[in-house]
Amino acid sequence: MSLSLEDVTRIALLSRIELSAGERENTREQLNGILGFIEQLQAVDTSGIAPMSHAVDVVQRLRPDIVTETDRRADFQALAPETEAGLYLVPQVIE
């Protein structure tokens, strides 16, 4: 599997990472190098093997339905690039 420049552009868009035209070719080569390396996984016969998503084989612990959090908006919004009237501001979202 080898990535084309269009593939790189699509992945970069999905990842929301801007790549200049110049960076794209370089990125393509590097990603293809890595993909070439992980390609060896394809040769392994894994039929009948269940995928392992977690390092431990236990089930989920659940939380009681209790409100434990208090208002920390001022602390949190002190970290934000842009806020107004308690809202985080971003460029206009068009639907």
């Binding site: 107004e84 809202l87 501001l89």
Partner: peptide
């Protein structure tokens, strides 16, 4: 997302 009142910005309430 609140689209009004912020001069061309969108306000986010989480």
């Amino acid at each position: 997302s609140l689209h009004e009142d912020f001069q061309g910005r969108t306000g986010i309430d989480l």
